[in-house]
């Protein structure tokens, strides 16, 4: 398959099941909601070392938030429910509770309930106040700027992590420009995040390593500087490869995000140095969800 001169490999991305939740952070204005959201989703690029993968889903207008203030919705993914609950609580406690004027709400109602503000309330040292409104419990925790309002719980749902595609280009600036265009379009899709810095990862990994302690290592088949010394997957003109990783609440959400992302890359075309789209395929060792590039773009 070739789109606008860009070859779409006959391969697939492999993804794996995860647990996820959504939280809504509001504040006095969008600036401070975003600051809090960025703090909460910081250092959350990969479960390999961060404990979770998290990102900002979108900005919410005051009419879309529970307290009528500007807000930001974030998604957090982890390999299991316990890990998710721990990451959520730790990050909410250190990044939202601490952030001026912030409030924190559940972004998903249906599903197994996990603590959001339920345990953060103890920061109130006995002065915290519970309010049960429309069947939902909220905690009002007195803090130095007024009150921190947090919904007691949010719901955990099954999700999919690790959807991806690779952009192969003739130069590093061209690869990055294509990925930036893809990310801009993909951020319009609900229920997905691209957890790496700016949505783009330049250090794609393979499963395993020559060093027994490491479970993952550099994807040498796609490293352009190793074309002559390893079993490469790159043709001579490829000078840079970048990857976009997608976590989504469902397989269909990732399908849609990959479709718009790959299309944005292909719109730049071979004339702008974009040569191929491939995907992280680990021969079935990684996960049960397979995203076939040519099927997605058909």
């Amino acid at each position: 398959m070739i789109i606008n001169g860009v070859t779409i490999d006959q391969t697939f991305a492999e993804a794996f099941p995860m647990k996820a939740t959504r939280a809504i952070i509001t504040a006095q204005n969008e600036k401070w909601a975003m600051i809090s959201a960025q703090a909460m989703t910081g250092f959350a690029t990969s479960v390999i070392a961060c404990g979770c993968e998290a990102g900002i889903e979108r900005v919410l207008s005051p009419s879309e938030t529970p307290d009528g203030r500007p807000g930001v919705s974030i998604l957090i993914f982890a390999m299991g429910g316990k890990g998710l609950a721990k990451q959520l609580e730790t990050r909410a406690g250190q990044c939202v509770l601490t952030s001026p004027t912030s409030a924190l709400f559940a972004g998903i109602d249906e599903g197994k309930q996990i603590p959001l503000g339920k345990n953060l309330r103890y920061f109130g040292d006995g002065f915290q106040i519970s309010k049960k409104i429309n069947g939902k419990r909220y905690w009002r925790v007195p803090v130095m700027d007024g009150e921190f309002l947090a919904e007691a719980t949010t719901a955990q749902v099954g999700a999919v992590g690790g959807g991806n595609f690779l952009v192969l280009a003739e130069s590093q600036p061209q690869a990055l420009a294509a990925c930036e265009a893809a990310i801009e379009e993909m951020r319009k899709i609900p229920n997905v995040i691209m957890p790496f810095p700016g949505g783009v990862v330049r250090s794609g990994s393979k499963v395993g390593s020559k060093y027994p302690a490491l479970g993952a290592s550099t994807n040498d088949a796609f490293c352009p500087t190793l074309k002559g010394v390893t079993q490469t997957d790159l043709s001579p003109e490829i000078e840079s490869v970048m990857e976009i990783v997608i976590d989504g609440l469902t397989k269909e959400d990732i399908d849609q995000a990959m479709r718009v992302g790959i299309q944005a890359v292909c719109d730049m075309g071979a004339e702008q140095g974009i040569k191929r789209i491939s995907a992280g395929n680990y021969g079935g060792k990684l996960g049960p969800f397979h995203f076939h590039l040519q099927e997605i773009m058909a």
Partner: peptide
């Protein structure tokens, strides 16, 4: 005197 964030949620109920 204070601005309390839970009040708009209470009123919406």
């Amino acid at each position: 005197s204070h601005t309390l964030a839970f009040l708009p949620i209470l009123f919406s109920s």
